[in-house]
Amino acid sequence: MSETISNVTVTITVNGRQRDVTCEPRKLLSDVIREELVLTGTHVGCEHGACGACTVLVDGAAVRSCLLFAAQMDGAEITTVEGIANPDGSLSDVQEAMRDNHGLQCGFCTPGFVITLTAFLRDHTDPTDDEIREAISGNLCRCTGYHGIVNAARQVCGRANGGES
Protein backbone atom coordinates (compact mmCIF):
# COMPACT_ATOMS: atom_id res chain seq x y z
CA MET A 1 0.00 0.00 0.00
CA SER A 2 1.17 3.43 -0.86
CA GLU A 3 1.42 4.76 2.68
CA THR A 4 3.87 2.06 3.75
CA ILE A 5 6.39 2.75 1.01
CA SER A 6 8.86 5.59 1.36
CA ASN A 7 9.39 7.87 -1.59
CA VAL A 8 12.62 7.93 -3.54
CA THR A 9 14.44 10.93 -4.96
CA VAL A 10 16.29 10.75 -8.26
CA THR A 11 18.22 13.32 -10.23
CA ILE A 12 17.38 13.42 -13.93
CA THR A 13 18.43 15.74 -16.70
CA VAL A 14 15.28 16.47 -18.69
CA ASN A 15 15.52 18.38 -21.97
CA GLY A 16 18.88 19.71 -20.86
CA ARG A 17 17.82 20.81 -17.42
CA GLN A 18 18.71 18.96 -14.23
CA ARG A 19 15.72 18.10 -12.04
CA ASP A 20 15.34 16.36 -8.68
CA VAL A 21 12.19 14.25 -8.59
CA THR A 22 10.68 12.68 -5.50
CA CYS A 23 8.08 10.02 -6.09
CA GLU A 24 6.81 6.62 -5.09
CA PRO A 25 9.18 3.88 -6.25
CA ARG A 26 6.32 2.24 -8.16
CA LYS A 27 5.54 5.33 -10.20
CA LEU A 28 6.06 4.86 -13.92
CA LEU A 29 8.48 7.14 -15.70
CA SER A 30 5.66 8.15 -18.05
CA ASP A 31 3.51 9.28 -15.12
CA VAL A 32 6.39 11.15 -13.50
CA ILE A 33 7.15 12.95 -16.77
CA ARG A 34 3.49 13.94 -17.13
CA GLU A 35 2.57 14.69 -13.52
CA GLU A 36 5.73 15.64 -11.62
CA LEU A 37 7.58 17.29 -14.50
CA VAL A 38 4.34 18.52 -16.15
CA LEU A 39 5.62 17.61 -19.60
CA THR A 40 2.30 16.38 -20.95
CA GLY A 41 3.49 15.90 -24.52
CA THR A 42 4.52 12.36 -23.56
CA HIS A 43 1.27 10.42 -24.00
CA VAL A 44 0.15 7.21 -22.40
CA GLY A 45 -1.64 5.05 -24.96
CA CYS A 46 -1.49 1.51 -23.61
CA GLU A 47 0.67 1.16 -20.50
CA HIS A 48 1.95 -2.17 -21.75
CA GLY A 49 4.73 -1.13 -24.06
CA ALA A 50 2.86 -1.86 -27.28
CA CYS A 51 1.75 1.47 -28.76
CA GLY A 52 4.86 3.64 -28.45
CA ALA A 53 3.00 6.89 -27.68
CA CYS A 54 5.08 7.37 -24.52
CA THR A 55 8.46 7.02 -26.26
CA VAL A 56 11.22 9.28 -24.96
CA LEU A 57 14.98 9.37 -25.41
CA VAL A 58 16.93 8.01 -22.45
CA ASP A 59 20.64 8.65 -22.91
CA GLY A 60 19.92 8.97 -26.61
CA ALA A 61 18.00 5.73 -27.04
CA ALA A 62 14.27 5.71 -27.86
CA VAL A 63 12.50 3.82 -25.07
CA ARG A 64 8.97 3.39 -23.77
CA SER A 65 8.54 5.41 -20.62
CA CYS A 66 5.54 3.32 -19.52
CA LEU A 67 7.83 0.31 -19.09
CA LEU A 68 10.29 2.07 -16.79
CA PHE A 69 10.08 3.29 -13.23
CA ALA A 70 11.29 6.80 -12.57
CA ALA A 71 13.24 5.34 -9.66
CA GLN A 72 15.50 3.59 -12.18
CA MET A 73 16.42 6.86 -13.86
CA ASP A 74 18.90 8.43 -11.41
CA GLY A 75 21.59 10.16 -13.46
CA ALA A 76 19.84 9.61 -16.78
CA GLU A 77 19.53 12.16 -19.53
CA ILE A 78 16.00 12.26 -20.89
CA THR A 79 14.64 14.05 -23.92
CA THR A 80 10.88 14.32 -24.33
CA VAL A 81 9.00 15.62 -27.36
CA GLU A 82 9.10 19.09 -25.79
CA GLY A 83 12.88 18.98 -26.23
CA ILE A 84 12.94 18.19 -29.96
CA ALA A 85 12.16 21.53 -31.61
CA ASN A 86 15.00 23.93 -32.38
CA PRO A 87 16.06 26.33 -29.60
CA ASP A 88 14.21 29.20 -31.30
CA GLY A 89 10.99 27.16 -31.20
CA SER A 90 10.95 26.32 -34.90
CA LEU A 91 10.16 22.73 -35.83
CA SER A 92 12.95 20.18 -36.22
CA ASP A 93 13.44 18.52 -39.61
CA VAL A 94 11.42 15.51 -38.49
CA GLN A 95 8.62 17.68 -37.14
CA GLU A 96 8.56 19.86 -40.25
CA ALA A 97 8.48 16.78 -42.48
CA MET A 98 5.60 15.31 -40.47
CA ARG A 99 3.70 18.53 -41.05
CA ASP A 100 4.57 18.74 -44.75
CA ASN A 101 3.39 15.17 -45.35
CA HIS A 102 0.26 15.12 -43.16
CA GLY A 103 1.93 12.57 -40.91
CA LEU A 104 -0.47 13.34 -38.09
CA GLN A 105 -4.18 13.84 -37.64
CA CYS A 106 -5.40 13.62 -34.05
CA GLY A 107 -1.83 14.01 -32.81
CA PHE A 108 -2.02 11.65 -29.85
CA CYS A 109 0.50 9.10 -31.13
CA THR A 110 2.59 11.85 -32.73
CA PRO A 111 5.09 12.57 -29.93
CA GLY A 112 6.10 8.90 -29.97
CA PHE A 113 6.63 8.95 -33.72
CA VAL A 114 8.62 12.19 -33.52
CA ILE A 115 10.95 10.68 -30.92
CA THR A 116 11.28 7.33 -32.69
CA LEU A 117 12.01 8.92 -36.06
CA THR A 118 14.40 11.45 -34.54
CA ALA A 119 16.51 8.64 -33.06
CA PHE A 120 16.24 6.41 -36.13
CA LEU A 121 17.10 9.09 -38.70
CA ARG A 122 20.00 10.31 -36.54
CA ASP A 123 21.52 6.85 -36.87
CA HIS A 124 20.35 5.97 -40.41
CA THR A 125 20.85 8.60 -43.10
CA ASP A 126 19.76 6.55 -46.10
CA PRO A 127 17.31 3.87 -45.00
CA THR A 128 15.20 1.79 -47.38
CA ASP A 129 11.41 1.97 -47.25
CA ASP A 130 11.35 -1.38 -45.48
CA GLU A 131 13.81 -0.10 -42.89
CA ILE A 132 11.70 3.01 -42.31
CA ARG A 133 8.54 0.96 -41.87
CA GLU A 134 10.37 -1.46 -39.57
CA ALA A 135 11.74 1.43 -37.52
CA ILE A 136 8.25 2.72 -36.74
CA SER A 137 6.64 -0.72 -36.40
CA GLY A 138 6.56 -0.32 -32.63
CA ASN A 139 4.47 2.84 -32.81
CA LEU A 140 0.76 2.60 -33.47
CA CYS A 141 -1.22 5.25 -35.30
CA ARG A 142 -4.96 4.84 -35.89
CA CYS A 143 -5.49 7.94 -38.05
CA THR A 144 -3.03 8.10 -40.92
CA GLY A 145 -2.47 4.58 -42.25
CA TYR A 146 1.23 5.48 -41.78
CA HIS A 147 1.65 6.73 -45.35
CA GLY A 148 2.24 10.35 -44.35
CA ILE A 149 4.65 9.29 -41.61
CA VAL A 150 6.69 7.15 -44.01
CA ASN A 151 6.71 10.03 -46.48
CA ALA A 152 7.97 12.32 -43.72
CA ALA A 153 10.90 10.00 -43.08
CA ARG A 154 11.61 9.87 -46.81
CA GLN A 155 11.62 13.69 -46.93
CA VAL A 156 14.12 13.93 -44.07
CA CYS A 157 16.39 11.56 -46.01
CA GLY A 158 16.09 13.78 -49.07
CA ARG A 159 14.05 11.25 -51.04
CA ALA A 160 10.99 11.74 -53.21
CA ASN A 161 7.76 10.68 -51.62
CA GLY A 162 5.73 7.65 -52.47
CA GLY A 163 8.45 5.72 -54.27
CA GLU A 164 8.91 1.97 -53.88
CA SER A 165 12.33 0.88 -52.76
Binding site: T40, G41, T42, I84, R99, F108
Partner: peptide
Protein backbone atom coordinates in the same frame (compact mmCIF):
# COMPACT_ATOMS: atom_id res chain seq x y z
CA UNK B 1 0.35 20.72 -36.27
CA UNK B 2 2.94 22.90 -34.51
CA UNK B 3 1.41 22.38 -31.09
CA UNK B 4 0.77 18.67 -31.63
CA UNK B 5 4.26 17.99 -33.01
CA UNK B 6 6.00 19.68 -30.11
CA UNK B 7 4.02 18.15 -27.26
CA UNK B 8 1.87 21.20 -26.62
CA UNK B 9 -1.53 19.76 -27.41
CA UNK B 10 -4.08 19.85 -24.62
CA UNK B 11 -5.83 16.50 -24.31
CA UNK B 12 -8.19 15.84 -21.43
CA UNK B 13 -5.57 14.15 -19.26
Amino acid sequence: DPRLLTGHGRYVD
